[in-house]
Design a protein around this nucleic acid. Sequence first.
DNA 1: ATGTTGACATGTA
DNA 2: GTACATGCCAACA
Length: 106
Amino acid sequence: MDSNKSFNEKCYSLLMQIPRGKVVTYADIAHQLGGKAYQAVGNAMASNPTPIVVPCHRVVNSNGAIGKFALGTAKKIALLKEEGILINEDKDHAKIVNLNKQRHTF
DNA sequence: ATGTTGACATGTA
DNA sequence: GTACATGCCAACA
């Protein structure tokens, strides 16, 4: 049966709950969905029909890394910085600073 | 740190 | 409809 909201819609709902200046990990989202579909979540983001509207750029890896982004990792970093997220720019090793502190809790 | 295994949605054959 | 491959990953050895 097709659920009311597709998997991708659920992910977007959670994403839109994230206030500016906060970030979440794929594991957190997957956990909120009641499973461990980390990559499924990421895939849903990749299929993101409305970027920016859905802050998919506020989602980072569990280890604090930026991960990838449909519009480009650099774009993601730039957006996060613009949003006020502190990122450790080390050459090409961009990582979230104090992830646990900037991590948003649902 | 590296490699392998695990879990889930989507697309293609 | 079943099977295989891929993907903005994570946990474990």
